[in-house]
Design a protein around this nucleic acid. Structure first.
Lengths: 103, 103
DNA sequence: TTGCTATATATAAATCTATTCATATAGTAC
DNA sequence: GTACTATATGAATAGATTTATATATAGCAA
């Protein structure tokens, strides 16, 4: 458990590195959303969505507020966009490169 | 195995999301390196380093060339910097935020 | 109070990941 | 050919992650 810089950086990236969690963050780009709006977008149990939201929250990537029975989640910082876009960008580059080498 | 965009993006981020692999990428920022130079930098078995290098390679993040007995690895694309820096940036923001709320 | 709704959590099973040790492969030198 | 070096891989294990099912909690309404 060497808790150096790389350790913490890896923890944050690990929180991002799941298709469901990426999709949740994408949904939240449009603004805060109630869990009750997030669940129907994902083909997945409510309990499971709740766990993924918790993982994002523990890593500080999203925050939430309660309003009656409902809980609304939002991106904790808009600079999360930059990270997601840098990774989309790389993905596109690698994809195109792979296409070329296959032709 | 729903292989959509989020799936591939998550795969790439998962390859990044390990302290050892982040450190390897950091080392490679300085230019290509022989495995024999990478191993001593990491407190870790050679076989394990080899596996981590392979994970990075399979994801397209690094590439390698052979020269005699030695194998040299390098970043596959310099835009990997952007991704790593975006994540460092976020990490710093979250860290500072945490410090403030603890004071 | 009871009943209902929205969200979270406990537990367990299945799957995936990281690690080590031992061994294999590939290249060089003799 | 043998001996040596650098890197990769197989097999086993330990540990972490994801998921589903069931249950718990919290807030509202009557």
């Amino acid at each position: 458990m060497a808790e150096n810089r790389y350790h913490y950086q890896a923890e944050m990236l690990k929180a991002l590195a799941h298709p469901t969690r990426l999709q949740i963050l994408e949904l939240l780009k449009g603004g805060e959303l109630c869990v009750c709006k997030i669940v129907p977008e994902l083909q997945m149990e409510q309990s499971n969505v709740s766990r993924h939201l918790n993982i994002l929250k523990k890593e500080g990537l999203v925050s939430s507020r309660k309003e009656g029975l409902k809980v609304f989640y939002r991106l904790a910082d808009l600079r999360i966009h930059d990270l997601l876009e840098a990774s989309s960008e790389l993905l596109k580059i690698f994809w195109e490169r792979r296409q070329k080498t296959l032709v």
